[in-house]
Write a protein that binds this DNA or RNA. Structure first.
Lengths: 147, 147
DNA sequence: GACCGTCGTAACGGTAATGGTTACGGCAGG
DNA sequence: CCTGCCGTAACCATTACCGTTACGACGGTC
């Protein structure tokens, strides 16, 4: 599967904003987050834009502009982030319609659809168990590199 | 996520071979399966080649060649198929190393790795619960189209 | 009202995965 | 020898993702 890093980067950004705000700052800029994630500010703005549409963050424009959390880290789950940044289903059906004259070709799509729905439901349940608060805790629990 | 249909097509092929063998045939050809799945025989041969490497099917060459199951459908799970055809992890880390001088940049990868491992473990557990026998049952349970 | 920093977004290009297609050598039974 | 199918390489089109540049819009500050 061509895995992508959208969920990872989005979680990174949220954790960064959350920690920054706890240090007393009002807003975080896409450039600051991009520096931490070692990527381009536009990539961050694009992702945060999707998170804003999902109601997870807010943005301020003009002077002193930047991003802030719309909810506490403890009330945001990885499922919220996943739904905001990952549009499609986990597994896809055939690109073209299977032969409806074949028993297998006719029944395979309803069969797999049901199976995939159950699996995705389980995945969503797992993602919903993990809050961004927990992610930040795990981040801060990482051992320091030895000098 | 750019979902792919590899698992779907592989399950389709296995169900087709299994049903064909129950109808008394020895081997199935990639062309027969490709017709049912409405795709190209080479696509089927590529996928079945990966399933063969995983010990799920066998192929015969020469005259009267084709594919047969190496195991009963009831002993093959979607996890077996998933592992055979889906190499990478579900979610990826950053493409470039995050800033190790930043607290979040330093701790995010260990944190997400642990979380993703748990999630993938759950996914694998779910996939392991579903046998290809069950898939074929679901396929055959699909209602006929009304004339 | 001008200035400045940042957002918002369009546009383009590189990279990689997927899958459709053609081609061709190799194998084995008739 | 002939034939049918596997096995695999090669190529191309499509798509997603991400990095990058560019530029207009906005809203505080001076």
């Amino acid at each position: 599967m061509s895995a992508n890093s959208r969920l990872t980067i989005a979680a990174h950004a949220l954790a960064w904003i959350g920690l920054y705000q706890r240090q007393g700052h009002e807003v975080a800029t896409s450039e600051q987050i991009a520096t931490s994630a070692n990527t381009n500010p536009v990539v961050i703005r694009r992702l945060l834009g999707e998170l804003r549409r999902a109601g997870l963050v807010e943005s301020r424009r003009g002077a002193g502009a930047g991003w802030s959390l719309a909810r506490e880290l403890g009330s945001i789950t990885l499922l919220d982030v996943y739904e905001a940044v990952e549009p499609g289903p986990l597994f896809a059906m055939h690109r073209t319609t299977p032969d409806p004259g074949c028993v297998v070709g006719h029944g395979i799509q309803p069969a797999m659809r049901g199976i995939y729905q159950d699996i995705e439901e389980t995945l969503r349940h797992e993602l919903a168990r993990i809050t961004l608060e927990k992610v930040l805790e795990d981040v801060l629990a990482a051992p320091r590199l030895p000098l």
